[in-house]
Design a protein around this nucleic acid. Sequence first.
DNA 1: GGCCTTATTGCGCATAGTTGCAATAAGCGC
DNA 2: GCGCTTATTGCAACTATGCGCAATAAGGCC
Lengths: 129, 129
Amino acid sequence: MRWTPQRRSVVAALSGASGHVTAAELVERCRDQDPTTTPSTVYRTLDVLEELGLVRHGHGADGREEFHVQPAVEHGHLYCSACGGRWEIAEGQAQAVVAAFASVDGFEVDLSHMTVVGVCGACARAGGR
Amino acid sequence: MRWTPQRRSVVAALSGASGHVTAAELVERCRDQDPTTTPSTVYRTLDVLEELGLVRHGHGADGREEFHVQPAVEHGHLYCSACGGRWEIAEGQAQAVVAAFASVDGFEVDLSHMTVVGVCGACARAGGR
DNA sequence: GGCCTTATTGCGCATAGTTGCAATAAGCGC
DNA sequence: GCGCTTATTGCAACTATGCGCAATAAGGCC
Ligand SMILES: [Mn+2]
Ligand SMILES: [Mn+2]
Ligand SMILES: [Zn+2]
Ligand SMILES: [Zn+2]
């Protein structure tokens, strides 16, 4: 495994990003530093970083991959299709969900890769429907 | 709303497809019938069909959209990242999950849009790890 | 410091999906 | 059946992402 300048660049861009970033955004961030950045290299670097466990990815409400540096607690994401809001899935719910799937056939849910879309409480009450 | 030959084509391709199909697959199926099929038209048609409630889409383990003709029971999908297996989420788990989210802030989960990835019981037991 | 192996890069090309816009044609009224 | 309005289509250009392959350069060895 080689520590190349382009990998350094991606790691820097990642740590400089709070929360979640899509690969395309990362390409941009890297380009801000080094305009010669190549997309394929960034995509491939993200793959290795994930194999190394340094980052994890989930999917936005639209299915697009979103990366985030490995956080303290593994967590999934919740998206409101009405207001566009997004939240991390709380420990409590996460446990309930994991348990629900584990109970049936021993299915082990990959929490950090879990994306749940729906309508948040606020929108549900407001929008009626 | 106009009933055009290209929309008829997409609907035909959809009904001829059992289970789930990705938009790209649908484009292929349409082309088998009518080689002049244009991708953008298929994609746009899928959008209107979904607005009409004739189809719904979820996302595969990789985030790609997958369509299926509106089934009797709304359901999400479960994917095993180890063996590639896929299942519909059973009523029981679905209820547990919906309840888990509803309980906290009244979040209303869109079940048919729910994708859960992880390791199935069989793979978990087999692969250890 | 130079050499050598081979992991990585950059590139060109490919696929999936989106969007603006001008040309086309449903379907309604007569 | 004939126009007319305007929903749809086809196309071209574009974004996001992936892949094969030859050229390049990390980093271990002496
Ligand atoms: Mn979706
Ligand atoms: Mn994924
Ligand atoms: Zn909301
Ligand atoms: Zn499995």
